[in-house]
Design a binder for these strands. Structure first.
Length: 451
RNA sequence: GUCCGAAUGGUGUAGAGGCCUAUCAUGGAGCCCUGUCGAGGCUCCGACCCGGGUUCGAAUCCCGGUUCGGGCGCCA
């Protein structure tokens, strides 16, 4: 175990292969170097096994007492779990070893020794609570299950980008530091911007609409949104990732079609590209059937009133019990989890949702649900400046605060529509994860600000 | 915000007024062991959230606080 301090050591020499890249048939008797963490040391006396773990898997390093340099064996036995090591040795095909090979080491270099005891177990023998795991996320990520979630999240985002790009959308970014409260409704985090008050943006909504006036035609953004709501549930975060699109010369039905096709595409891509991670989590994914069921708001109210103790009046928003009732009802009837609720009362939707021309009390707004959870909401937008101003006023907001936005509507704003979908909610519903914090590396909630 | 529940070694737990010098597992230290793969065996180490109260006696009951979990509200 020589740390060759003072001597030049190229980092490239610390690893020639990931553990998963070692094919015993090709690399038998060849020398390789693997690098990673000491997962376990099993000392049986005459034989000692060191399990090295890297991002792609594990490799068994075998030291037979009679055949191993005594100093090397002694050092291997003393390895501290979760220390970072680089191990060079010969690949030996071996039926008794996991993955069909083991490594006969020549050199074991400790690059960084781990403290002991560890903040939590990494082998899966003892579970840790979410709070404990989040306090030590770096250790939690060394567990297979946790890594699997974030590999899948990566596949989800990759699928979003490829799907939207292939459908003519341009990826854009909007500012997160803004001067005014965008939509009313939710509370914002105030910050200091030099000598002025500013806010963290709750949504890219207003900016992506401005881009429609700019003629970008079809845009998308994947970015953080901030909500200062003091909600305290398993499905809310104060910092979340929103996937947003906006498309010109489209109505709400056009963008609903984009949405359902994208969701189906994401499921297909995750099944195709992350089957190992799905297996680690024990999740069997099924691509949702297209098109998604479209319930009108009126139908949704009827379902709630017929199937639960709740009695809703027309114009009421849907609470948790209502969403639960509708979601279970839809699943029982269709066997599908995803569905739309369309044709909402104009009054309970944001000012930018377009009312139906022939029935102003209904708007061209929709929510996309997964069982009991709202995943996405969208609408055809108001593109007529006069109507937009009156809608802003009727929501009790002051149009003066929206001048930067309204300006874009006066010089040629095409009709347009769009939606936003919560990335974390998409991932959690896909994987059946119960707490949204499980699918965020470093969640920000009512209480947690660190790490 | 509100209601309900919880807090015991590093981690996960048992515990219902005296049986607690606190259970078990995991972990750590050490010893034995040549095929482990949640290795096994033996020895040892390590904990009752904080503050008050009730009681002869409190991990256990009561009050306050803190933190965490869950429901609802609000929201996406």
């Amino acid at each position: 175990m020589s740390v060759r301090s003072g001597e030049y050591m190229s980092l490239a020499n610390l690893r020639t292969h990931y553990t998963s890249q070692i094919n015993p048939e090709e690399l038998g008797d060849q020398k390789v170097t693997v690098a990673g963490w000491v997962h376990e040391v099993r000392d049986l006396g005459g034989i000692c096994f060191v399990v090295l773990r890297d991002r792609e898997g594990r490799a068994q390093v075998t030291l037979v007492k009679k055949k191993t340099d005594p100093q090397l064996l002694e050092n291997a036995r003393k390895l501290v779990r979760e220390s970072v090591v680089s191990i060079s040795g010969t690949v030996k095909p071996e039926g008794k070893a996991p993955n069909g090979y083991e490594l006969i080491p020549e050199e074991i270099t400790v690059l960084n020794e781990a403290d002991s005891p560890l903040p939590m177990d990494t082998t899966g023998k003892v579970e840790a609570e979410l709070d404990t795991r989040l306090d030590s996320r770096f250790i939690d990520l060394r567990r297979e299950r946790t890594t699997a979630i974030f590999r899948i999240r990566h596949e989800v985002l990759r699928a979003v980008r490829s799907f939207l790009t292939d459908n003519g959308f341009i990826e854009t970014s909007s500012p997160k530091v803004v001067a005014t409260a965008t939509e009313g409704g939710t509370s914002l985090f105030p910050i200091t911007y030099f000598d002025r008050e500013a806010f963290l943006n709750q949504s890219p909504q207003l900016f992506k609409q401005i881009l429609m006036s700019g003629g970008l035609d079809r845009v998308f953004e994947i970015g953080p949104i901030f909500r200062a709501e003091e909600h305290d549930t398993r499905r809310h975060l104060n910092e979340a990732t929103s996937i947003d699109i906006e498309a010109s010369f489209c109505d709400h039905f056009d963008v609903m079609e984009v949405l359902e096709n994208m969701v189906a595409h994401i499921y297909e891509q995750v099944i195709g590209n992350a089957s190992d991670s799905l297996a680690v989590l024990g999740v069997e994914l099924k691509v949702p059937k297209l098109p998604f069921l479209k319930l009108t708001y009126d139908e949704a109210i009827e379902i709630v009133n017929a199937n639960s103790d709740e009695m809703l009046n027309w114009g009421d928003d849907l609470g948790t019990v209502a969403e639960h009732t509708i979601g279970e009802h839809v699943f029982k009837e269709t066997g599908e989890s995803h569905y739309f609720i369309i044709d909402w009362p104009t009054e309970i939707k944001p000012f930018y949702a377009m009312p139906y021309e022939d029935n102003q009390v209904l708007s061209k707004a929709f929510d996309m649900m997964h069982r009991t959870m709202e995943l996405s909401s969208g609408a055809q937008r108001v593109h007529i400046p006069e109507l937009l101003i009156s809608r802003i006023e009727s929501q009790g907001l002051d149009p003066e605060g929206f001048e930067f936005y309204l300006k874009a509507f006066r010089y040629g704003m095409p009709p347009h529509a769009g939606w936003g979908i919560g990335c974390e909610r998409l991932v959690m519903t896909m994987l059946g994860v119960e707490n949204i914090r499980d699918v965020v590396l470093f969640p920000r909630d009512r209480r947690r600000l660190s790490p």
